[in-house]
Simulated scan of single mutants.
Amino acid sequence: MAVFKPKFITFDCYGTLIKFDMAGAASAIFSDRVSADDMLPFTNDFACYRLDEVLGAWKPYGEVVCQAMIRTCKKWGVEYQDSDGAGIMEACATWGPHADVPAGLATVAKAFPLVLLTNSMNDLISHHVPRLGAPIHRVFTSEQAQSYKPRMRGFEYMLDQLGCGPEDILHVSSSLRYDLMTCHDMGIKNKVWVNRGHEPANPAYGYTEINDIGGLPGVLGL
């Protein structure tokens, strides 16, 4: 990708910047009900149901997590307790950034306004923004947009609030399914995929690949 000077650099937060560990949280809670051999496919199903849950009408993220876990438990014949979803949400609030994030963000923040578009709640994201180690210009949550990614509405809301078009931003994410495929469909041409091993590559979606946020300054010619 040729060096591009965006008006804003927009980011996915969880997974891309914050070390998102739903699988670890679920594994800790369900270790007494799910065997070690079954835990990886169990948590993989939990991830798939979370994606399915965000495709409909907006609801609080705690409900997304609980409903996804209820469906996962039903599939596996595992008892679900109300405390399970609450425990996972409590774990969410404790997570911090990937080790590469603070320095990488601080470098690009000197030249560009940084914006978050996150599938978070207003009160939940407040735990994480201060841990990123760089000034964040704006934060847009699913609660504000009343829509979760990968739906387009959140991106549309963000662009409207920023007063810019798809051609004016560089969007950075570790997820093709939640972010970069939607960006492609919306005509957001300038995209960076942070390959954290969450999903397989698909270069047809037209992104620049980096291994971590430390590679982002180079993409921007910094």
Rank of each mutant, 00 (worst) to 15 (best):
M1R: 02
V3R: 08
K5F: 13
K7H: 06
D12C: 13
C13F: 15
C13W: 12
D21C: 01
M22I: 13
G24M: 07
A25W: 03
I29A: 05
S31C: 12
V34T: 13
A36C: 01
A36M: 06
D37L: 12
D37Q: 03
D38E: 11
P41E: 12
P41T: 12
P41K: 07
N44G: 09
A47F: 13
R50S: 03
D52N: 14
E53L: 07
V54A: 00
G56F: 00
G56P: 10
W58F: 12
K59A: 07
E63T: 14
C66V: 01
Q67L: 12
Q67D: 15
M69R: 02
T72V: 02
C73T: 07
K75I: 10
V78Y: 05
E79I: 13
E79N: 11
E79T: 15
Q81K: 12
Q81V: 08
D82C: 07
S83D: 14
S83K: 11
G87T: 01
I88A: 01
C92W: 14
T94F: 02
T94N: 04
T94S: 13
G96T: 06
G96M: 02
P97I: 04
H98W: 13
H98T: 03
A99S: 14
A99V: 14
V101H: 04
A103Q: 13
G104P: 06
L105W: 11
A106Q: 14
V108E: 05
K110H: 11
A111Q: 14
P113H: 12
L116Y: 01
S120M: 10
N122H: 01
D123F: 15
L124C: 07
L124P: 08
H128A: 08
P130R: 09
L132S: 07
G133D: 04
A134C: 10
H137M: 05
H137D: 15
R138T: 14
V139P: 09
T141G: 13
S147L: 00
K149G: 07
P150I: 04
R153M: 12
G154L: 05
E156S: 08
E156G: 10
Y157K: 07
M158S: 08
D160W: 05
L162W: 12
C164L: 03
D168E: 08
L170D: 03
H171E: 11
S175E: 01
Y178M: 05
K189I: 10
K189Q: 15
K191F: 01
V192T: 02
N195D: 15
N195C: 00
R196H: 09
R196M: 04
H198Y: 15
E199Y: 08
P200W: 09
P200S: 14
A201S: 14
N202C: 03
Y205C: 04
G206T: 08
Y207M: 02
I210L: 11
I213P: 03
I213S: 00
G215D: 10
P217M: 06
P217N: 02
V219T: 09
L220R: 00
L220D: 08
L222A: 11
